[in-house]
Design a protein around this nucleic acid. Structure first.
Lengths: 258, 258
DNA sequence: AGGCGGGTTTGACGTGTGTCAAAGCCTTCC
DNA sequence: GGAAGGCTTTGACACACGTCAAACCCGCCT
């Protein structure tokens, strides 16, 4: 939990793909404005190039190509990652090699918080499109949090938030409810990060969606067809339009309300 | 997030049931030894009656009778609760009043961490048997955490841990797998808290179990009968014996492995 | 002790969704 | 441009589990 992270099983990626040392993030940029960790960067004075009070807290990572792995199940936990561009899925591999898709992450969202307790990453993180990241040394961030109560509070809330969200998929919901909630949630998350919330590309395959929602890929396909037939969405390949968000939200209300 | 909690919607319970002011917990006691927050108490010198460096951090609560509510969905978040005795279920109530059982908590376990982000409790906590609690002011604990990195780290890990666990119920597992994993998990948690791990009372009803596992109560009953017929368990009413933990663990391996 | 009531068990039946299969579509790569 | 392969769609069928119903059991209260 301390020291630079250039050693260990992440080094193949970290060593090769680090951003040039002179790079300084800009909290006011499009990239950073909507990031869940922007307040952490702001706190240490990033954005003012002349200050670097906590060199080693954050560094850029990438670009990764679609399909490449950012970290692997079992890797020692040393940092969390904010998605800067692209999208990511996290997955666990069964003892029999069967995949289990835990979640999808959009720009501005944070990966790796579930690794704090076991001190190892409990899942792989795989880029679904070309992607870039900000890597936050967790030991540096913890140290900062003891000096800055606002940072500590922010981290507590960030982890607690995922706790509440990860429970949503545990109920006994129908395939339609799950799909509706999934689509609405995705739209809201895109919107929250400054993208159009009713018109976007699904960066993951039907079977990834199915796996994530505990459905069969065929069921996902059927439900999407049904939604289209009812005029709720438009979908062609992976290009999605949400036509009637309100009705979708009603369908997924059981999951979305919390 | 600050100030005493004697006001607000918790006051009916808090005001009436607080332990006498002179009470001092004893970290070496049976009650405390296995508690997930014992290190926090130890950190501030509880157990040494002459010290009280952080009066207001923790206080005792209860006893509550079976069926009584410790906190309610929507209550403002001011504290987390460690179970001192008895067992508890947390549940959400649907917009239509349908119950959703989120979890069961044994002595030594901590309730309320999912309330940090929304700043309100997302669920009710209901005593399943007569129960007592230690109430930890979260603002006091946060303040302590900024001074004691070990406490901060402990809290991060505690929340992150629940994050990993709450994902287990989200997969598409068969009823048998769910039940097996549930029983083994319960046994291990009892064992971790110093109770016999293969012989205990289920403090919750079949329908609570069913709801929690996203099954029908009838299915739970049927699975338990099947497990008994196969010699895996003995069960009579709510008294449970785990006869073949190994085979149960195999059945629930998909969930338990992580 | 007796009787009430909720929880539990067991059976019969229906259905949502998984599985298997085949055809179609899109993308990629040569 | 054409072929190959993976992803997607659609259909037919099976099965695990939910639902409905009835009987049972047990604790609890009078």
């Amino acid at each position: 939990m301390h020291g630079p992270a250039t050693e260990g099983r992440l080094s193949h990626a970290v060593g090769r793909q680090r951003a040039p040392a002179g790079f300084v993030p800009d909290v006011a940029s499009d990239f950073c404005r909507s990031c869940a960790l922007s307040s952490v960067c702001a706190m240490v004075g990033y954005g003012k190039p002349e200050l670097s009070p906590l060199h080693g807290l954050m560094e850029h990572l990438g670009p990764y190509r679609a399909g490449e792995t950012i970290f692997r199940q079992g890797d020692p936990f040393e940092a969390v990652f904010a998605v800067r561009a692209g999208t990511v899925k996290t997955r666990q591999l069964d003892h029999q090699g069967r995949e289990r898709v835990l979640g999808f992450f959009l720009p501005g969202e944070v990966i790796g918080l579930d690794a704090i307790y076991p001190d190892r990453f409990p899942c792989d993180a795989v880029a679904l499109e070309d992607a870039q990241f900000c890597r936050f040394s967790f030991s540096a961030m913890s140290a900062l949090a003891t000096r800055q109560p606002a940072v500590q509070r922010h981290l507590f809330r960030l982890i607690s938030r995922q706790l509440g969200m990860s429970r949503l998929l545990a109920g006994d919901y129908s395939a339609g409810e799950r799909m509706a909630a999934f689509l609405v949630d995705l739209g809201e998350r895109y919107a929250a990060r400054g993208f159009p919330g009713t018109h976007f590309q699904l960066s993951m395959s039907r079977s990834d969606i199915a796996n994530h929602l505990s459905l069969a890929a065929e069921t996902v396909s059927r439900i999407l067809s049904r939604f289209r037939a009812k005029g709720l969405i438009g979908i062609r390949g992976r290009v999605l339009h949400l036509h009637d968000t309100q009705r979708l939200r009603d369908l997924g209300r059981k999951l979305l309300a919390a």
